[in-house]
Amino acid sequence: MTKDKLTIKYIVIEDEPLARRGLVKLLKDYECLECMGMYSNTEDARMIMEGQQLDLVFLDIHLPEETGLEFAKLVPASIQIIFTTAYPNYALESYELNALDYLLKPIAEDRLKKAVDKVINHFQKNISEQEIVTQTDHIFVKADRKLFRLELNEIQYIEAMKDYVMIHTKNKKLMVAMNIKTICNQLPGSDFVRVNKSFVVNLNNIESVDNHWVTVAGFEMPLGASFKENLLKRIEKHTINR
């Protein structure tokens, strides 16, 4: 999802080719939706979900090998789910998984519009909340049973460690009990960007970038291939806006 112009990146997981193509064709009417791929099974879909920033999944329930309901339990909370199925009896279970909506096949255009409107409203609300967060120049984090105030310009980079992150500042390191996506949501996207699955860097503190490495405060970290294009665009935009 981008802020300057609302762009919601989605994929479709559906084992019936006609249903897959038909849904994407209907969704082309919505300029804010950008299709990142169509998949017949969850295994293939996982590859793009690991390497790209996604906002939304249109997910069939009856799939080969792994059901949509099973797959949904593993989808990060930041990615919204709309179930698509021919069976109405899974509705309750889908909402227990915090699905944004539940569409019955064949999907009527007016019903699809209601679901898309719900998606747009959800992400517009998120943008508004993030803009409130980015108006501040600091965040509070809990470490060692204390609350620490961190000035954003003091944060050099953040390292993921399973259910924790290590925040590296100019003067100290703090181990915080939250995952990397959670803390990313607290940071202004204008200054912080992921360079691979495990590291977020402060654009203001980048010393160098090449095809494979990013250096911050003398520390080299790998530049993920799927993150490289976004990083270079962000650096260019950050330089222009300064």
Score class of each variant (00 low, 15 high):
residue 1 M to P: 11
residue 3 K to C: 08
residue 3 K to R: 14
residue 4 D to G: 00
residue 6 L to E: 12
residue 8 I to F: 09
residue 9 K to T: 03
residue 13 I to T: 14
residue 16 E to C: 09
residue 17 P to M: 08
residue 17 P to I: 04
residue 18 L to K: 13
residue 19 A to F: 00
residue 19 A to G: 03
residue 20 R to Y: 01
residue 20 R to W: 00
residue 24 V to F: 01
residue 25 K to W: 06
residue 32 C to S: 13
residue 34 E to R: 07
residue 38 M to A: 12
residue 41 N to F: 04
residue 43 E to L: 13
residue 46 R to K: 14
residue 49 M to F: 13
residue 53 Q to V: 07
residue 56 L to N: 05
residue 56 L to W: 10
residue 57 V to W: 04
residue 57 V to T: 00
residue 57 V to I: 15
residue 59 L to M: 13
residue 62 H to Y: 06
residue 62 H to C: 05
residue 63 L to P: 11
residue 64 P to Q: 11
residue 64 P to R: 12
residue 66 E to F: 01
residue 67 T to F: 07
residue 67 T to L: 08
residue 68 G to D: 11
residue 69 L to N: 08
residue 71 F to V: 09
residue 74 L to M: 13
residue 74 L to D: 15
residue 74 L to T: 15
residue 75 V to L: 11
residue 76 P to I: 12
residue 87 Y to G: 00
residue 88 P to M: 06
residue 90 Y to T: 13
residue 91 A to F: 05
residue 92 L to E: 14
residue 94 S to E: 07
residue 101 D to P: 05
residue 101 D to T: 00
residue 102 Y to N: 06
residue 103 L to D: 02
residue 104 L to R: 08
residue 107 I to G: 07
residue 108 A to D: 07
residue 109 E to P: 00
residue 110 D to T: 10
residue 113 K to F: 02
residue 113 K to W: 01
residue 115 A to H: 05
residue 115 A to P: 01
residue 118 K to H: 04
residue 120 I to K: 10
residue 120 I to N: 04
residue 122 H to A: 03
residue 123 F to K: 09
residue 123 F to R: 07
residue 124 Q to C: 01
residue 124 Q to Y: 02
residue 127 I to L: 09
residue 127 I to A: 04
residue 129 E to C: 00
residue 132 I to V: 09
residue 133 V to Q: 12
residue 136 T to G: 08
residue 141 V to F: 05
residue 142 K to I: 02
residue 142 K to E: 06
residue 145 R to M: 03
residue 147 L to V: 09
residue 148 F to M: 03
residue 149 R to L: 08
residue 153 N to F: 08
residue 154 E to S: 15
residue 162 K to R: 14
residue 163 D to F: 02
residue 163 D to W: 03
residue 165 V to E: 10
residue 165 V to C: 15
residue 170 K to H: 07
residue 172 K to W: 00
residue 173 K to D: 09
residue 175 M to W: 06
residue 175 M to N: 01
residue 178 M to G: 00
residue 178 M to F: 00
residue 179 N to E: 02
residue 180 I to T: 07
residue 180 I to C: 07
residue 183 I to Y: 14
residue 184 C to I: 00
residue 185 N to H: 11
residue 187 L to R: 09
residue 189 G to N: 15
residue 189 G to S: 08
residue 189 G to Y: 03
residue 189 G to E: 14
residue 190 S to N: 10
residue 193 V to L: 01
residue 195 V to T: 14
residue 198 S to R: 05
residue 198 S to Q: 15
residue 198 S to N: 14
residue 199 F to D: 12
residue 202 N to E: 03
residue 203 L to E: 03
residue 204 N to C: 06
residue 206 I to L: 04
residue 206 I to K: 02
residue 209 V to P: 06
residue 210 D to M: 04
residue 212 H to T: 10
residue 213 W to G: 01
residue 214 V to F: 04
residue 215 T to M: 11
residue 218 G to V: 03
residue 220 E to N: 15
residue 220 E to L: 06
residue 221 M to Y: 04
residue 222 P to M: 03
residue 222 P to W: 02
residue 224 G to S: 04
residue 226 S to Q: 12
residue 228 K to I: 02
residue 228 K to Y: 01
residue 229 E to M: 06
residue 231 L to Q: 08
residue 231 L to M: 05
residue 234 R to W: 05
residue 235 I to C: 05
residue 237 K to F: 11
residue 237 K to M: 14
residue 241 N to K: 06
